[in-house]
Nucleic acid binder design. Structure first.
Length: 754
RNA sequence: GCCGAAGUGGCGGAAUUGGUAGACGCGCUGGAUUCAAAAUCCAGUGGUAGCAAUACCGUGUGGGUUCGAUUCCCACCUUCGGUACCA
């Protein structure tokens, strides 16, 4: 007898819903928290790839429940974001409405799969009852600085009292740049000046940063809308445009974010990606005094041992000291080079790494040998890494050597075993030579000795450097969290008091982005406040809401606070987190950062939010492509899979239908441009090329789980996805072999009901 | 270039404190059922030789450790993912 899957599944799904089977609350049983990365509710709905992770986490949840754990297993929606906004601009449907509709569709599909979520805890990041707390965390970040003595976040007023007493001298805080003022100067500053000083230390702060500006589209683009230096839509050039924007000082947490990785049960690949992104490297900062002009240049190096091998210096073309260093005879050449470097786009720099640079005419003094070192500028030194300046050691660094050869500079060797050309600075082997007091030491010992000597001479210090950059937190978009910030007539930022949150997103009739202005700037009534202040018109980025949602699930209906102490003391952290690798360095890094910040504030008891992480692979779709050659131009068009026959052929009548419906087929001459073939019955068909690719609407290869469940039942669908292969692997959806699983289910049923 | 992961039948893939390689499924072959088909059920299915019992070969390649290696060690090749002038 056939297993009547749908009848039985519907009965139980309804009963779970009626009896609230999977709703949980704090109890004296041990807890287990299983979390899926919540989806962005796109208009396309779920395809069979999405539930792979949800099914796996559901199996873990049910297993843990059977073992006696009190299992928290919630689901929600990351419902702010760009696609809803673009859809709104194109179709005139408000993102609020589109999002609501999409969530309805998602929830229906998820319920159909029979996942054991506690639906009473469902949350949406675009809900004011949720985003008021996202705004509050922003205000907390704004109201704190990173105290290096306490090694954690502390209220900004503690910094103010420090300035009152000591000025900037020895301030134990991580700041953007080093400031220098006395206590008296601080006390004499007006509000605006003080605010500028504090901005340098706040964990959420405003500074000039660069956005992707597309002149042709007249708009600011997100990073993923820029592909290879041009806009994804239209292929127009994109330039970097400076704008005053909010940033988060994630770099203050770099050390703890790197160190915390050790205690996580994550895959090696993911740990490696995070490590790489943080880019921690140990070394020294060394000061080189300038000759003829006052001042000095600091460089960062991981190889202070090779200091005696330094024969010149190189600055990034944008380095602050370039102006004063440049001698009048070199001025023209330097200016030409700066113009050249700034005209080079990202793509050009990446594809064409030729040696180039210019001599400034200036010299620095070697801090140990006192020899003069010529100072060059070159684009191979990056303004954003280290100090934007290097000491060049051409004998033991490939790039420095190429530069030295090009400009005919000396290449003194200081390590004996290091291979002469192209030796990597990472190869810390060999003994020191031609290096005065370092001679004969191993590289490892010499690094230490050099740092000690530099610190003694007060022209250098031990330094740990990070690749990690502060996170840009402003978006010139509508569909995101408004900032709880207003500006007075002098442009000084003010916070909206906690009790006035949420700052609600105003409903706009028309969402527009003109001349690089945010859509909210056109909402005059909202922007202009009665007290004369104007509201911040940018919104927060997509990662804001997703950086703490796992905490809100613990206490989702709390109206008085983001979550209660009791809830977070019981549920603590996520025991098992399931999601895709695409969030390896974005979401997972920001969430860990916010969690550590909340830990510093004593709001959460754990240092890391996600104990164990499983990255499910992608389920790919089989797509069919029609290759055509038109006027000697090759191109391929995706053909909906259900239009082809089982031999991947597209018959002429189907092609003509497609051509009438689908504008992608416009302009093709059915007779002339297509490689028609004929079957035994002399019917014309086109051979299609099959390809395994990511499932997406645009590729016409999407399989909807609802269809699969209707045919084979939720259990058949779930088991099949689990049997497809290892959870972490990418693998193509293959409808053919699902029958084996379904037969198995029927046979099980037959054991009891024949 | 650097970092990470992985290479097993026609296909997806099992098996690791070192102990019968190929579980389970797809596909294929033969059979049962049927007027016929679909569906279902039974049997077989790594390669080579043989009627057969059986023998030999076999987990990317080449070495090594071991009574015994898909599993451990060394070198290399290939594929995938990340990252890239990071000092």
């Amino acid at each position: 007898m056939r297993y009547p899957a749908r009848r039985i599944e519907k009965k139980w799904q309804q009963r779970w819903q009626k009896e609230k089977t999977y709703e949980v609350s704090i109890s004296d049983r041990p807890k287990y928290y299983v979390l899926d990365m919540f989806p962005y509710p796109s208009g396309a709905g779920l395809h069979v790839g999405h539930p792979l992770g949800y099914i796996a986490s559901d199996i873990i949840s049910r297993h843990k429940r059977m073992q006696g754990y009190n299992v928290l297993h919630p689901m929600g929606y990351d419902s702010f974001g760009l696609p809803a906004e673009q859809y709104a601009i194109q179709r005139g449907i408000h993102p609020q409405r589109a999002t609501e509709e999409n969530i309805e569709k998602f929830r229906g599909q998820l319920e159909n799969i029979g996942l054991s979520y506690d639906w009473s805890r469902e949350l949406k990041t675009s809900d004011p009852r949720y985003y008021q707390w996202t705004q509050k965390i922003f205000l907390l970040l704004y109201g704190h600085f990173y105290d290096t003595d306490a090694d954690g976040a502390r209220p900004i007023d503690q910094l103010e009292s420090y300035f009152d007493k000591n000025g900037s001298e020895g301030v134990p805080a991580i700041g953007g740049e080093e400031l220098d003022f006395t206590a008296l100067e601080w006390r004499n500053m007006d509000r605006k000046e003080r605010e500028e000083v504090l901005m340098n230390y706040r964990l959420a702060y405003r500074k000039i940063s660069y956005v992707n500006w597309c002149e042709a589209l007249g708009t600011v683009l997100a990073n993923d809308e820029v592909v290879n230096g041009v806009s994804e839509r239209g292929g127009h050039p994109v330039i970097q445009k400076p704008m005053l924007q909010w940033s988060l000082r994630i770099t203050a947490y770099a050390e703890r974010l790197a160190a915390g990785l050790q205690e996580l049960d994550w895959s090696d690949a993911l740990i490696a990606q995070q490590k790489n992104w943080i880019g921690r490297s140990e070394g020294a900062t060394i000061r080189f005094d300038l000759q003829d002009v006052s001042g000095s240049i600091e460089v960062f190096t991981t190889r202070p041992d090779t200091l005696y091998g330094c024969s010149f210096m190189v600055l990034a073309p944008e380095h602050d000291a370039v102006g004063k260093l440049t001698t009048s005879s070199q001025e023209k050449e330097v200016q030409q080079y700066i113009d050249y470097a700034s005209s080079r786009s990202e793509i050009e720099r990446m594809s064409d790494k030729k040696v180039s640079g210019a001599f400034t005419g200036g010299y620095a003094t070697h801090p140990l040998s006192n020899k003069p070192l010529p100072i060059y500028i070159s684009e191979y030194v990056l303004k954003d890494y280290g100090t934007g300046a290097i000491m060049a050691v051409p004998a033991h660094d490939e790039r420095d050597q190429a530069f030295a050869r090009h400009f005919d500079l000396p290449i003194p060797q200081v390590v004996d075993q290091s291979e002469y050309p192209g030796a990597s600075p990472q190869d810390k082997v060999g003994k020191m030579i031609h290096s005065e007091f370092l001679n004969g030491m191993s590289v490892e010992k010499a690094i230490e000795a050099a740092i000690v000597a530099l610190e003694k001479e007060k022209n250098g210090r031990r330094t740990i450097n990070y690749k990690l950059r502060d996170a840009n937190f402003s978006r010139q978009r509508y569909w995101g969290e408004p900032f709880p910030i207003t500006y007075d007539t002098e442009g000084v930022p003010h916070t909206v008091p906690f009790e006035e949150l949420p700052v609600r997103l105003p409903k706009l009739e028309k969402i527009q982005q003109k001349e690089g202005k945010s859509p909210l700037s056109f909402a005059d009534d909202w922007v202009q406040m009665e007290n004369g202040h104007r509201r911040e018109v940018d919104t927060m980025p997509g990662f804001a809401g997703s950086s703490w949602y796992f905490l809100r699930y613990m206490d989702p209906h709390n109206e008085g606070e983001m979550f209660s102490r009791d809830a977070v003391d019981y549920w603590r952290d996520v025991d098992c987190y399931v999601g895709g690798t695409e969030h390896a360095v974005g979401h997972l890094m920001y969430a860990r950062f916010w969690h550590k910040f909340l830990y510093d504030l004593g709001k959460v008891p754990t240092k890391e939010p996600f104990r164990k992480l499983i990255n499910q692979g992608m389920i790919q779709g089989r797509s069919l492509l029609l290759d055509i050659t038109q006027r000697n131009q090759q191109r391929s068009i995706h053909v909906p899979i259900d239009r082809a026959d089982e031999k991947d052929r597209l018959f002429k009548s189907d092609f003509l239908e497609l051509q009438a419906e689908d504008r992608r087929f416009e302009g093709i001459d059915a007779e002339r441009d297509l490689p028609w073939q004929f079957d035994e019955e002399q019917r014309a068909f086109l051979p299609l090329r099959a390809d395994i690719e990511k499932m997406s609407k645009s590729k016409h290869n999407v399989v909807n789980p609802d269809d699969v469940i209707e045919e084979f039942g939720a259990d058949g669908f779930r088991m099949f996805e689990m049997f497809l292969g290892p959870i972490e692997d990418h693998k193509p959806w293959d409808t053919q072999s699902i029958t084996g699983i379904v037969k198995f289910l029927h046979r099980c049923y037959d054991l009891y009901f024949t």
